[in-house]
Write a protein that binds this DNA or RNA. Sequence first.
DNA 1: ACGCATATATAGACAGCCTATGGACGGCGC
DNA 2: GCGCCGTCCATAGGCTGTCTATATATGCGT
Lengths: 114, 114
Amino acid sequence: MPDPTRSDQLLPGTLEMLVLKTLSMGSLHGYGIAQNIQRLSGEALRVEEGSLYPALQRMTLKGWVRSRWKLTPTKRRARYYTLTAAGRKQLGLEASAFERLVEAIGRVMQTDAG
Amino acid sequence: MPDPTRSDQLLPGTLEMLVLKTLSMGSLHGYGIAQNIQRLSGEALRVEEGSLYPALQRMTLKGWVRSRWKLTPTKRRARYYTLTAAGRKQLGLEASAFERLVEAIGRVMQTDAG
DNA sequence: ACGCATATATAGACAGCCTATGGACGGCGC
DNA sequence: GCGCCGTCCATAGGCTGTCTATATATGCGT
């Protein structure tokens, strides 16, 4: 009986990495980050606001990003986030850690059942 | 400042899949499941007892596994877990869902930063 | 007798993602 | 002018799942 109220859209633990990656391509506001991840993933990943904004706050506290108010090209106020040097370093760390984990899981999952 | 008290050894959400996979190769007791995952992953994954036993209980409740007491080859009592038909089906579902997720994340992470 | 590996189990803490909700504002149709 | 939709930020509250820590028990080697 899988709980129908839970969608498990994202792989827990990967959100901050995806945000860091998105910001490594240029400063962006929260809404745009979510749209970007969704688009780049081929609509497979959906970033909920209730996940994203707390994550951006955590990442700001950790010094991986900083933000400032700016106007969008469409003249709307938005908080633009920019990757710091520490954030760029963190992106590298998380990306390689994730890759190692996926490879390790792959070794288990590809084991022949015979 | 990464929290040094947290190790994040496993990718959250993958434990049940790994357990299902391990059991698809034959019945096993909890301790053995943990050892097996650790060995098959090339020592990259470590399954903590405090994660594994609750997971086995959840999976029993969901009908994916069933268990019975048995003696190990070394004459020690142990609770052996066996995959049910529902569990085998679940393994297929989780494996393909995981693969899709990893591919989606890969699409984002491999995007050229230019 | 003692330590060590094997084996199960639970409590408690905590991170992180979810749903749900609220507000604000610009552009558009009418 | 008014309503509606899309954009944009933000927080509260709940829940899952993993972790650390601890307790118990037993077989084996020394």
